[in-house]
Design a protein around this nucleic acid. Structure first.
Lengths: 237, 237
DNA sequence: CCAAACTGTGTCCATCGGAAGCAATTCTAT
DNA sequence: ATAGAATTGCTTCCGATGGACACAGTTTGG
C-alpha cells in the first residue's frame, strides 16, 4: 500500500510546475464531482469514468491530477467532512465535547459513504486532523494522559459513526431498508431463539422517539466527568 | 439491493434437493476459503476467481452455492465472528458486559476485513444476532428501555470496532503502517498546526502501554453503572 | 526560437462480477 | 429396469472497471 500518494495529495505538498498548458481542473472540483455522485448513488457508483464524464473529460485525464482511485476517494472523504465548528468555550468540557460530537453527525448523515471510505488504516487528511485537534484541545489540561485523551476521542467519534451507520439508508433510495428495519424483519420469524433482541426491538418500536445519539453521549460523558474535575450535574437523575 | 438472497443464504433456509449430482462443496467450505484469503491478503484479494481457484473449481461453479459476491462476503463475515462465549453470570452486569466486549475484540483483530464487510445497512446473520442476544440478555431486567438497551450495545460494540480498527495492519504485511504510525508520520512535520494532537501523540508514545480498550470500556460502563442499580466500585479511583 | 515540460486523449490490457447454455450425473416415478 | 426431471460443474461470452503507455498539442524558460 503506497501511502505517499495519498499523503502528498491530501496535504497538497506539490510544487507548482510552470511550463505546459494550464490545468483545466482542480483537485477540489474533481473531488466535489465525486462527492455529488457518491451522495446521490453511493460510493459504488463513483468510477473514474463516471467522474470524468460528469466533468466533461476523459477518464485518463483525471490521472493527471490524482494518482489513483483510492486517493481520489480519500480526498473526497476528507473534503466531505468539512472543518469542525468553532469551540463554544466555557468551563464545562463535557458540554463542549458533546457539541463537538453533535457537530460531527451531519457530515456522516449527509455523506454516508464516508463511513465506508474511512474504515481501516488510512492516511489522515487535513480536515480529519482538524476534527481531532478540536476535540483534543478540549481535553488539554485535564489530568488525562495522552493515550487516554486519544481514547476519549475514539470512543466519541466511534459512537457518532455508529449512530450514522444505523441511520444510513441504501443509496438507491430504498428507504425501507434501514438497518433497524432489516433487523426487525430478520427477528420477526426467529424471535423465539433471540428473546432479548425481540423484546428490545418491540419495546423500542413502541417507545417512539429515538434518542440513541444523546443517550450514548451521556453515557460516555458521564463516565468522563467522573475522571476529570468538571462542573456539571453530578447526579444523572 | 436484494436482501432476500443474503437472508436465505445466511439463515440457511434452503430445502435440500435430492436429485442430481451430489454437491462437491458446502457453504462452510467456500466461506472458510474466502476467510483464509481475506485474512492473508485483505478483502480486496477475495474474488470469485480466486476463491474458486483455491478450491480447485471454476469461478462459475461457486454461483451454484452463492447468489453473488456480496452474499459470500456476508457469509464470510458472519462465520468469521463466531459465536459469543457463555455468559459468566454473576450480579455485576457491567462486568459481564465488559467480558462480552473483550471477547468481541479477537475476532475483529484476527479478521480485520470484517470491519469493512460490515459497514452500512446489511442483513444480520445468525452469529451477529447471537452476539447481540448475549449482550441484550445481560441488560434484561434493568430499568433501561428497549431503545436504550440497543444503544448500550451499539456504544460498546462500536468502541470495540474502533479499537480493532486502530490496531489493524495493512493486509500486505506492512507492519509499520498501523493507523497510529501513519498518524504520527503525518503529524511529525505539521505538528505546529495541531498542537493538541502532537502533544497527545508524544505523551502516548512515551507513556508506554496501550490501554485504549479497557479505558474506553471503563468510561462507558461507569456511565452505565450510574443508570442501573448495580454493585461494583462506585469510586473510579 | 527552440527544446523542455506539461496537459488531455486514444488505445490497449488484465481482471472483475455475472448471464446463458451445455454435458454429465443422479434421483424419482413408472 | 428405464425414461424423464432435476442438479451439478464447466465453457463461453459480455460489459465495466482501474490503470499503463504512447502520442499530439500547448505553454514557458533559456
Amino acid at each position: 500500500m503506497d501511502l505517499t500518494g495519498s499523503l502528498d495529495l491530501l496535504w497538497g505538498d506539490r510544487p507548482g510546475p510552470r511550463r505546459g498548458p494550464k490545468p483545466a481542473l482542480t483537485h477540489d472540483l474533481i473531488a466535489r464531482t465525486g462527492i455529488a455522485i457518491a451522495d446521490a448513488e453511493g460510493l459504488a457508483a463513483v468510477s473514474m469514468q463516471r467522474v470524468a464524464a460528469d466533468l466533461g473529460f476523459t477518464k485518463m485525464s483525471l490521472y493527471r491530477y490524482v494518482p489513483g482511485k483510492s486517493e481520489l476517494v480519500a480526498l473526497m472523504a476528507d473534503l466531505a467532512m468539512g472543518t469542525p465548528p468553532a469551540d463554544p468555550g466555557g468551563d464545562d468540557r463535557c458540554a463542549r465535547l458533546r457539541a463537538w460530537a453533535l457537530a460531527l453527525l451531519p457530515g456522516f448523515v449527509r455523506h454516508p459513504w464516508v463511513l465506508e471510505a474511512t474504515t481501516g488504516p488510512r492516511v489522515v487528511g487535513p480536515n480529519e486532523l482538524a476534527w481531532m485537534e478540536a476535540a483534543l484541545a478540549v481535553l488539554d489540561g485535564t489530568g488525562l494522559g495522552g493515550a487516554a485523551r486519544m481514547d476519549v476521542l475514539a470512543v466519541l467519534a466511534g459512537h457518532v459513526r455508529n449512530i450514522a451507520q444505523q441511520a444510513a439508508t441504501t443509496p438507491g433510495g430504498d428507504t425501507g431498508t434501514q438497518f433497524g428495519a432489516i433487523l426487525a424483519e430478520v427477528v420477526r420469524e426467529r424471535g423465539d431463539r433471540f428473546p432479548a433482541v425481540k423484546a428490545a426491538l418491540a419495546e423500542a418500536a413502541e417507545g417512539g422517539e429515538d434518542e440513541a445519539l444523546g443517550f450514548g453521549l451521556d453515557l460516555i460523558l458521564d463516565g468522563l466527568r467522573a475522571r476529570i474535575g468538571d462542573p456539571g450535574r453530578a447526579d444523572p437523575a
